[in-house]
């Protein structure tokens, strides 16, 4: 069942989304060579709690932290720890927070120091594919119009989209229906309606789309160990088009 949100629910989600976006802004400032992912995690948790919100991931199906930190060939769901960021790495940071039990969820991938041009292209294409997808999140379109637009953009740029992990509906639960794949045929899936809220999150690999989960049961890596990037926004479908909920005030 896809839950359509009321104006009041959307207001909570806008609050949660803003806090998530601000947390990511803090993360972007904090990422530099020598910093550990556990330090980033602590900073994110402090920020979210200071705002009176709750970290959505901590304890979710046993996930131990506030952020997912995924470096280089790690695709998503990396667990923060003592690994230090190095010059030339890329790190994906995924954060969720809730206000009055309504969740916001977003992710960015940022360079650590100087990265090579092809890695930068991977980040740019992934970020742009998210926006190409969001552009399709309009009343009357179908869900897979979003999926198809992302896949087409990514593959035209000679990268691949992860199949095994997908975006999702979001609201009072962090994961609601529908699933939002980043691939698929246009013109299929449920029709989009005002009040739907979706977390759209392309995971884009430099090499093969295939991924596997490590022994910790969380960290997902590319099968060919080539780098992967991840960008995500929580959006609402409104009469005026897609509204990005996970953004900072004034952005």
């Amino acid at each position: 069942m896809i839950v359509l949100k009321t104006a009041r629910e959307l207001a909570y989600m806008r609050d949660a989304g803003r806090i998530v976006a601000e947390t990511l802004q803090e993360m972007e400032k904090a990422v530099k060579p020598g910093v550990t992912t556990a330090e980033l995690d602590a900073k994110a948790e402090d920020y979210i709690r200071q705002q009176g919100a709750k970290p959505s991931f901590k304890g979710y199906q046993g996930f131990p932290a506030t952020i997912c930190s995924s470096i280089n060939e790690q695709v998503v769901h990396g667990i923060p720890g003592l690994r230090k960021l190095e010059n030339g790495d890329i790190i994906s940071i995924d954060v969720g927070a809730s206000v009055n039990d309504y969740h916001g969820d977003a992710a960015i991938t940022v360079p650590v120091g100087e990265i090579d041009a092809e890695l930068q292209r991977l980040l740019d294409v992934t970020r742009q594919s998210l926006h190409v997808g969001i552009e399709q999140a309009r009343i009357g379109n179908r869900l897979f119009d979003i999926s198809h637009a992302i896949q087409e953009y990514v593959e035209d740029n000679r990268f691949s989209v992860v199949r095994q992990f997908v975006g999702h509906g979001i609201g009072k639960k962090m994961h609601e229906e529908p699933q939002v794949p980043n691939y698929g045929p246009a013109g299929r899936g449920p029709r989009l309606q005002a009040g739907m809220t979706l977390a759209i999150e392309p995971m884009v690999n430099a090499g093969t789309w295939e991924v596997e989960t490590k022994e910790d049961q969380w960290t997902v890596v590319t099968k060919d160990m080539k780098p992967s990037a991840h960008f995500e926004h929580t959006i609402a479908i409104t009469d005026d088009g897609p509204e990005i909920l996970t953004r900072t005030r004034g952005a």
Partner: peptide, 8 residues
């Protein structure tokens, strides 16, 4: 946070 999905 992404959702794990079944794949062909």
């Amino acid at each position: 946070m992404a959702v794990g999905q079944v794949t062909p």
